[in-house]
Simulated assay, not measured.
Amino acid sequence: MSKENKIFVSCEDANHFCDKNQYKEASFWEKVRLNIHLIYCKACRKYSKNNNTLTRLINDPKVIRMDAAIKTDMKKQLKEKMSEQQ
C-alpha cells in the first residue's frame, strides 16, 4: 500500500492536514484522513480545536478599543495604588 493511500496518519501529518484545512487547501482525502485521526487522538483534537478558534478570531475580530482618557486615568490610579503599597 502506498503512503498516499494510507488511512491512518501520524500526528505530524494530521496537524499538517489541519493547517491546510484551516486555509481551505485540504483535499477531500486529507479531510477524511484527518477526521479519522481525530477520532482516536486527543492531542490532535485539541490542536484542531485551537486552530478553529484562531481562524474564527482572525476572521471576525471584535476588538474593543479603550478610550485614551480612560486608559490614562487607569494608569494614574494604578500608580497611586502601587505607591500606597510601598
Rank of each mutant, 00 (worst) to 15 (best):
K46I: 13
N51V: 15
L54M: 05
K42F: 07
L54V: 07
E80V: 04
K20G: 06
W29Q: 13
V9Q: 05
S48W: 13
A69I: 11
K6V: 00
E80A: 13
A14T: 01
V9A: 06
A26S: 10
E12K: 06
L54E: 09
I58A: 06
L57R: 11
C11W: 00
E4M: 08
K62V: 08
L78S: 08
F17S: 02
S48G: 10
M74K: 10
M74G: 03
I70Y: 04
H16I: 04
C18T: 08
C18P: 05
K42A: 08
A43I: 09
N5V: 07
D60Q: 12
K31W: 04
S83E: 15
K42W: 01
K3E: 12
K81V: 07
Q77Y: 14
A43Y: 09
W29H: 12
S2Q: 03
M74F: 13
S10F: 10
K24W: 10
I70D: 12
E12Q: 09
Q77A: 14
A14M: 11
N21W: 09
S2N: 10
V9L: 07
T72R: 14
Q86C: 07
L34W: 08
S83G: 03
V63A: 05
K20S: 08
M74C: 12
E4Q: 15
K42S: 09
I36V: 15
D13P: 05
C11Q: 03
K81C: 06
E25L: 15
C44T: 03
M66P: 03
E30C: 03
Q85F: 14
V63Y: 12
K79G: 05
K3R: 08
I58N: 04
H16Q: 12
N15T: 00
I39A: 09
S2H: 10
L57H: 11
H16A: 10
K49L: 13
K76W: 06
